[in-house]
């Protein structure tokens, strides 16, 4: 029995499945594998970011993520940006382990710096969103195949200058990849994805061939979804950013919050003033 405070009231500590790492300190007791001399890799995420949302709209794509990096159930870092531009027309939105995210940023920025230098001296084509996506997919699949996963789920959004079309796709720690006009990671896949699909299909139709949402409609939809996530995802915070990627480039909004309504809570047993 661990006596660390992180274990208190955490019955799930005895479960092998713990998606949100609610007890990051609790498992530090097991060191038997190390004594056998085996190499240890990142086997669980520690500081984590929750959902990332993405949608295609008529002039590009939109990606949103909140500003929280949790340490288990502790809201540890409340001003973390989880949206990262890669060049002028590609953007990465990251959920999962934040140290792996920082490593990813470092590697990708180094690569893009090299590419930028090449493009100055030569007619070197710049990396398209799908180029960067393929690179990341290979990286994630390669690392999972070494049993040393990059513990993230990421959305790659962008604008392909040559094809003149938007790009939106997903990669996770297993190297699983897919693309769709609306995407969400983690809790967002349960709570936001149905709302995103409903709004998208209401205009574009089930085949996606009709008109897409406008930027205003898209932003309203994202705001609604981030609010729903804040209400129901305990690892979220009401402070988020939305990135918009179009032909003109990337704009990442300042942090904002959704207006919320809590007056109903006064009547709930265990929340407001109780008279029994």
């Amino acid at each position: 029995m661990s006596h660390h405070p992180a274990m208190w009231k955490q019955p799930s500590a005895h479960s092998s499945f713990n998606d949100y790492a609610t007890f990051p300190l609790a498992q530090t007791q097991r060191h038997s594998a190390i004594s056998h001399g085996a190499t240890q890799h990142t086997q669980q995420p520690l500081v984590t970011g929750t959902s990332v949302l993405g949608i295609k709209f008529d002039k590009g794509v939109m990606i949103a993520a909140d500003n929280l990096a949790s340490y288990g159930s502790l809201a540890r870092f409340r001003d973390i940006q989880r949206l990262h531009p890669l060049g002028k027309h590609t953007l990465l939105g990251v959920a999962g382990d934040m140290s792996d995210y920082q490593w990813l940023k470092k590697e990708l920025d180094a690569l893009l710096r090299q590419e930028e230098a090449l493009s100055l001296t030569d007619s070197h084509p710049s990396l398209s969103p799908s180029n960067i996506y393929d690179l990341l997919a290979n990286l994630f699949y390669g690392r999972r195949s070494k049993m040393n996963p990059v513990w993230n789920a990421v959305l790659v959004g962008g604008w392909d200058k040559n094809k003149k079309e938007s790009f939106l796709a997903f990669i996770d720690l297993l190297g699983t990849t897919y693309t769709a006009p609306t995407l969400a990671t983690g809790f967002g896949a349960h709570l936001a994805q149905p709302l995103l699909r409903e709004a998208f299909e209401a205009k574009a139709g089930v085949d996606g061939k009709g008109p897409l949402l406008t930027q205003e409609e898209g932003e309203k939809l994202i705001d609604d979804c981030m609010k729903v996530l804040f209400y129901r995802d305990a690892r979220s915070i009401n402070k988020y950013q939305v990135a918009i990627i179009t032909e003109e480039g990337i704009t990442i909004s300042d942090s904002k919050s959704a207006p919320t309504e809590w007056s109903f809570a006064e009547g709930l047993r265990g929340y407001g003033a109780q008279t029994q």
Binding site: H14, S16, N18, Q27, R30, S32, A33, H41, Q43, Q44, R144, S145, M147, P149, L174, T176
Partner: peptide
Amino acid sequence: APIEHRFNPYSDN
């Protein structure tokens, strides 16, 4: 017994 939390490299899609 150690708490097993081994990374599972597979999924079923």
